[in-house]
Structure formats: C-alpha cells, structure tokens
C-alpha cells in the first residue's frame, strides 16, 4: 500500500495501515510540522489537506487516504502557483501572527483550504471556519487580519 504525501509516493508498512495519519506523518515519515494537540479532533493542530480539503489527521487513518493527495504544512508552498511561500504563509509573516507558534501550522492549513474554496470569506465565515482551531496564545485577531490580507491581495 502506498500513499501520496506532498507529491511523494510513500510505501506504508503492513503494520502501520491502522495508525492515524498524524502519527504516521510525525513518527514514520518524520514530517513533524503537523502537530499533536488533543488527539480527538478538538484543537485543529493536526490539520492537513486531503485533496485540498482541511482534515484532522488525528481522526484519519492511513488506510483512509489511499488514492488521496495528502498535503502537510511542509508541502503547502507547492500548492500555490506563485514564487516562494504560499500567500497564506506570507500573510502570516507579514502580520506577525504566531506567538508560541505551535497551533499555527494547523491554523494555516485550515485558512488556506478556506481561501481556496472561498477566496473572499466574510468576517462571519472566517470565524466559523476557524472555530475548530484552538490558539491558547490568543492570536485570533491577527489570524483574521492575515486572512483578510490574503483575500484583499488576491
């Protein structure tokens, strides 16, 4: 069995087909940008894209993603056409969003999936879409500013 992560084909050992995608990414593929926060789908730190849609990798099993394009924070820049970092990553830097930064990979993955689907979200839509991503440092205001910046620059 093989799965595609950030464009690379990765062979899955038989005994790892039933582990979560999060554990597989972090402890087998050694892509540690995707974070563990709660393990039960409540914090969003583990958010990745499955065929471009935001999903909780702690609630997804490796066997669920056969034939699906998995994108992690490490591969996000490959999904945008421009040079360098993905526009959402650039906006995150320009607005100086991160504090501790631990939740931010998940925030960026949720925000980039939202903007992909809906390039000009309303304030209410941003709040609703981002509600599943906890940030204990309280960067929510800056996250809204960064998403708005991307929407305006697009």
């Amino acid at each position: 069995m093989e799965i595609v992560i950030n464009g690379d084909m990765i062979a899955v050992p038989d005994d790892l087909q039933n582990v979560t995608l999060l554990d597989f990414l972090r402890d087998f593929v050694m892509l540690t940008g995707t974070k563990f926060g709660c393990g039960i789908g409540l914090c969003g730190a583990c958010t990745v894209h499955l065929d471009g849609v935001a999903a909780r990798s702690c609630q997804t099993y490796v066997s669920d993603v056969i034939g699906v394009e998995v994108t992690t924070i490490e591969g996000l820049d490959q999904t945008s056409s421009g040079e360098g970092l993905h526009p959402v990553q650039q906006a995150w830097i320009a607005e100086g969003v991160p504090q501790c930064g631990y939740c931010q990979a998940g925030q960026i993955m949720t925000a980039s999936a939202l903007l992909h689907r809906n390039p000009a979200p309303t304030a209410a839509e941003i709040r609703e879409e981002m509600n599943g991503n906890l940030c204990r440092c309280g960067t929510y205001d800056r996250i809204r500013q960064a998403i708005t910046r991307v929407a305006q620059e697009a």
Binding site: E74, W92, G101
Partner: peptide, 13 residues
C-alpha cells in the same frame, strides 16, 4: 518581526 516566523509558518520550527 520575530526571527523564527518563517520556520514556524513552514513547519520547520
């Protein structure tokens, strides 16, 4: 801006 920002937003931190 903090010198760690790029590493954070690219998952390299």
């Amino acid at each position: 801006l903090h010198h760690d920002l790029t590493a954070i937003v690219t998952g390299q931190m």
